[in-house]
Amino acid sequence: MAPTDEWIRDGGRVCLDLANTLRDRWSVPHETLVDPSDLTRWLHGAGLLATEGLPSPSDATLHQARLLREAIDRAVLTTAEGRLPTQDDINLINETVAAAPRPLLQLTITDDHLTTSSTDTPVNDATAALGLIARDAIDLLVSPEVTRVRVCASDRCGLRFVDRSQGGRRRWCSMSRCGNRTKAQRHHLRLRTPDTNDSAAGMEDKPYP
């Protein structure tokens, strides 16, 4: 993550982190990729661009990034619910992934067997970086992990994330942010709201005048 990176990256997948660049989806959406330089900084912070000093992408590339973001968001949430994404969203993701470079293929030994693994390396072009994000989305959409995609339970958040907790009961995008804040708000509300049952019981215990 770049030192000047102010984005939240708690999605667990780079494609979900891109979806989360549109904040406050629960209310009035807030755009964080305002201009092409924002996209450059976000991609560099995600480890997808080899250097932050590259020329800013065009307005068209920024527009493509936003379209990809929304297509991924719709496709993932739809698939997580056991339904198929729209053909338009599938086409957009497929068109974007075409710009991704071929993954670096390597040999590895796993459980005493020779296998292959592939890794993506940072690129020098924003369009290719978007292709890497599309590739990550495709990998998520066809994996069992897609059923673990959640939306933060805070009514003032809406960030998407992969729940990798052992019991699959993670509710917050971040316990240190939304989890603790929500619990503190509920505790404060309980302190301010008297328990009507306790009040009624107290009145019954008092002798009539």
Rank of each mutant, 00 (worst) to 15 (best):
T116A: 15
T61Q: 07
V14Y: 00
L84Q: 15
R177D: 08
M175H: 06
A50H: 07
R13I: 01
V162L: 15
D205Q: 13
Q166F: 12
A137F: 03
R135Q: 09
G179T: 00
S56E: 15
D136S: 10
W42V: 01
E204G: 07
L18M: 06
W172S: 00
D35R: 14
R170N: 09
R169P: 02
A19S: 07
S165H: 08
E52A: 15
P144C: 12
I8N: 10
A128H: 01
T86F: 12
L105N: 14
L92S: 03
V149C: 03
T86M: 12
S143N: 12
R69N: 04
T96R: 02
D73K: 10
R41V: 09
R186K: 13
E95N: 11
L33Y: 00
R169M: 08
A99I: 11
S27E: 09
L68H: 07
D163H: 05
P207H: 07
V34K: 10
T147E: 12
T32L: 04
T110V: 15
P29S: 04
D112Q: 15
D10M: 03
H63G: 11
R192Q: 07
L159G: 05
L49R: 02
G47H: 03
A71V: 03
L54N: 08
R13A: 04
S117P: 04
R25A: 09
M203I: 13
E6H: 09
T78P: 00
D198P: 09
A65L: 07
G11R: 01
V14W: 03
R186I: 03
T196K: 11
R41S: 10
A137V: 04
N20M: 05
R164A: 14
T115L: 11
D35V: 14
M1W: 04
N91K: 15
L67M: 08
R74Q: 14
A137G: 05
S176A: 06
D139P: 03
L189G: 06
D205L: 13
A100E: 08
P122V: 00
S176Y: 00
V14D: 00
P55W: 08
C173G: 02
G131Q: 08
R171Y: 02
N91L: 15
G12M: 04
P207R: 07
H63I: 07
D195E: 13
D35M: 10
G47R: 07
L67C: 12
C15K: 03
W7I: 07
